[in-house]
Amino acid sequence: MTSCHIAEEHIQKVAIFGGTHGNELTGVFLVKHWLENGAEIQRTGLEVKPFITNPRAVKKCTRYIDCDLNRIFDLENLGKKMSEDLPYEVRRAQEINHLFGPKDSEDSYDIIFDLHNTTSNMGCTLILEDSRNNFLIQMFHYIKTSLAPLPCYVYLIEHPSLKYATTRSIAKYPVGIEVGPQPQGVLRADILDQMRKMIKHALDFIHHFNEGKEFPPCAIEVYKIIEKVDYPRDENGEIAAIIHPNLQDQDWKPLHPGDPMFLTLDGKTIPLGGDCTVYPVFVNEAAYYEKKEAFAKTTKLTLNAKSIRCCLH
């Protein structure tokens, strides 16, 4: 018999989150649709729960009410004593943790798909938090293969000092899905179709896995975050240069030392320094102006996964 890495157990509980950011409308629209008619997301033997994560922000069509829901799922915020004085999103995070967690427990949901849009030209993107997770690498390989020839990129946010504390991190297997470009507060049919297909293929993978299909060893190309880059700023902290036209919409493309990065209003080009080629992502993302992030630098690498098969009882 072929030796293989056996994944822990079959997958039982899956959640699909929309509206973690209330103005990213593809996930909101799909989740609302699936709450009314969820036939397309159901798979035999699998509990799939669509869920609106930040209903107040969705109602106002804004990213958040008090603070970013997708950055506060750490033990400090989840452990705060519940009171009306807490920011709305912290209270909501505790409610979500109660419903789908608790985080880092045996009772937490197996998989959470968190649906997002970006204003950046990132196409279909899967966000991975753990480079050693054979199950998710296999799932992402399946999704990428199923979507081809449509490109699907994998963004690895594993980093020693950049801690995200994402909404989906309460699950055993957290999956971020990011599709763009799409303006905030807008629905685009092409973007919706791409996100819908990503979810379909992900659920198909889980179904095949649960039925005992063995997935042979595989490898995927990923883009691992190195650092986030702020806009150049003046002495008052105001933005002093904008994304250069040569960099705009060039997510995932190589940016070499000396290539144009920013452009000042008086026409001066600010190039990339250093001696390493990087791959920019979230270029000129609207939501990241407040976070002082013009783009993120990534490096390209390959992740390998062992063969996996479900432990059938």
Score class of each variant (00 low, 15 high):
residue 2 T to N: 12
residue 3 S to H: 15
residue 4 C to G: 09
residue 5 H to S: 10
residue 6 I to E: 10
residue 6 I to T: 11
residue 8 E to S: 13
residue 8 E to K: 11
residue 9 E to I: 12
residue 11 I to V: 12
residue 11 I to L: 14
residue 13 K to N: 13
residue 15 A to D: 00
residue 17 F to Y: 05
residue 18 G to P: 02
residue 18 G to A: 14
residue 19 G to S: 03
residue 20 T to S: 07
residue 25 L to G: 15
residue 25 L to V: 14
residue 26 T to N: 01
residue 28 V to A: 12
residue 29 F to G: 06
residue 31 V to A: 11
residue 32 K to F: 03
residue 32 K to L: 05
residue 34 W to G: 03
residue 35 L to W: 07
residue 36 E to H: 09
residue 37 N to R: 10
residue 40 E to N: 02
residue 41 I to P: 00
residue 44 T to N: 14
residue 45 G to C: 07
residue 46 L to P: 02
residue 47 E to D: 10
residue 47 E to W: 08
residue 47 E to V: 11
residue 48 V to K: 01
residue 49 K to Q: 06
residue 51 F to M: 11
residue 53 T to Y: 05
residue 55 P to Y: 09
residue 55 P to F: 09
residue 56 R to I: 12
residue 59 K to T: 15
residue 60 K to G: 14
residue 62 T to W: 06
residue 65 I to W: 09
residue 66 D to L: 02
residue 67 C to A: 10
residue 68 D to M: 04
residue 68 D to F: 04
residue 69 L to C: 07
residue 71 R to K: 12
residue 71 R to I: 10
residue 73 F to R: 12
residue 74 D to R: 06
residue 75 L to R: 12
residue 77 N to L: 07
residue 79 G to I: 15
residue 79 G to Q: 13
residue 79 G to K: 09
residue 80 K to L: 08
residue 82 M to H: 13
residue 82 M to N: 14
residue 82 M to E: 10
residue 82 M to K: 15
residue 83 S to W: 07
residue 84 E to I: 09
residue 86 L to W: 14
residue 87 P to F: 14
residue 87 P to H: 14
residue 88 Y to A: 07
residue 88 Y to W: 14
residue 90 V to T: 12
residue 90 V to Y: 13
residue 91 R to A: 07
residue 92 R to K: 14
residue 92 R to C: 14
residue 96 I to A: 06
residue 96 I to T: 08
residue 96 I to V: 13
residue 96 I to D: 13
residue 96 I to G: 09
residue 97 N to E: 11
residue 100 F to N: 05
residue 103 K to R: 08
residue 107 D to K: 09
residue 108 S to T: 10
residue 109 Y to R: 02
residue 111 I to D: 02
residue 112 I to P: 01
residue 113 F to R: 03
residue 116 H to D: 01
residue 116 H to M: 14
residue 116 H to E: 04
residue 120 S to K: 03
residue 120 S to C: 13
residue 122 M to W: 01
residue 123 G to H: 07
residue 124 C to E: 02
residue 125 T to I: 05
residue 127 I to F: 12
residue 127 I to W: 09
residue 127 I to D: 01
residue 128 L to M: 12
residue 129 E to R: 09
residue 130 D to R: 03
residue 131 S to G: 13
residue 134 N to S: 13
residue 136 L to K: 01
residue 137 I to R: 01
residue 137 I to N: 00
residue 141 H to L: 02
residue 142 Y to Q: 02
residue 142 Y to H: 07
residue 143 I to E: 01
residue 144 K to V: 06
residue 145 T to K: 15
residue 145 T to W: 07
residue 146 S to P: 01
residue 147 L to C: 15
residue 147 L to D: 00
residue 150 L to S: 13
residue 153 Y to G: 08
residue 155 Y to K: 12
residue 155 Y to G: 05
residue 156 L to A: 06
residue 156 L to R: 01
residue 156 L to I: 06
residue 157 I to D: 14
residue 157 I to L: 13
residue 157 I to R: 14
residue 158 E to N: 10
residue 159 H to I: 06
residue 159 H to R: 11
residue 164 Y to I: 07
residue 164 Y to Q: 07
residue 165 A to F: 14
residue 166 T to A: 14
residue 166 T to W: 10
residue 170 I to W: 06
residue 170 I to G: 05
residue 170 I to S: 06
residue 171 A to Q: 02
residue 172 K to I: 04
residue 173 Y to F: 11
residue 175 V to R: 01
residue 175 V to N: 00
residue 179 V to N: 04
residue 180 G to R: 02
residue 182 Q to V: 12
residue 183 P to I: 01
residue 185 G to H: 04
residue 186 V to Q: 08
residue 187 L to W: 00
residue 191 I to L: 07
residue 192 L to D: 01
residue 193 D to N: 13
residue 194 Q to T: 13
residue 195 M to L: 04
residue 195 M to G: 10
residue 196 R to M: 01
residue 196 R to K: 06
residue 196 R to V: 01
residue 198 M to H: 00
residue 198 M to D: 00
residue 201 H to C: 15
residue 202 A to Y: 00
residue 204 D to Y: 00
residue 204 D to C: 01
residue 206 I to V: 15
residue 209 F to G: 00
residue 210 N to I: 07
residue 210 N to L: 05
residue 212 G to N: 05
residue 213 K to D: 12
residue 214 E to H: 12
residue 215 F to A: 02
residue 216 P to R: 05
residue 216 P to I: 05
residue 216 P to K: 15
residue 218 C to A: 06
residue 224 K to H: 10
residue 224 K to P: 03
residue 230 D to L: 06
residue 231 Y to W: 10
residue 231 Y to P: 02
residue 232 P to V: 04
residue 233 R to E: 12
residue 235 E to R: 08
residue 236 N to V: 15
residue 236 N to T: 07
residue 236 N to Q: 10
residue 239 I to A: 07
residue 240 A to K: 14
residue 244 H to V: 00
residue 248 Q to A: 06
residue 248 Q to F: 02
residue 248 Q to C: 08
residue 250 Q to L: 06
residue 253 K to R: 15
residue 253 K to L: 08
residue 254 P to N: 03
residue 255 L to W: 05
residue 258 G to I: 06
residue 259 D to C: 06
residue 260 P to F: 04
residue 261 M to P: 02
residue 261 M to H: 00
residue 262 F to L: 06
residue 263 L to F: 13
residue 263 L to S: 07
residue 263 L to G: 02
residue 265 L to M: 15
residue 267 G to E: 06
residue 269 T to P: 08
residue 269 T to F: 06
residue 271 P to H: 09
residue 272 L to H: 15
residue 274 G to N: 06
residue 275 D to Y: 09
residue 276 C to N: 14
residue 278 V to P: 02
residue 282 F to E: 10
residue 284 N to I: 01
residue 288 Y to I: 12
residue 288 Y to K: 15
residue 290 E to T: 13
residue 292 K to E: 07
residue 292 K to P: 06
residue 294 A to E: 02
residue 294 A to V: 02
residue 295 F to V: 01
residue 296 A to E: 10
residue 296 A to R: 10
residue 296 A to F: 15
residue 300 K to G: 03
residue 302 T to L: 13
residue 303 L to N: 02
residue 303 L to D: 00
residue 311 C to K: 06
residue 313 H to T: 14
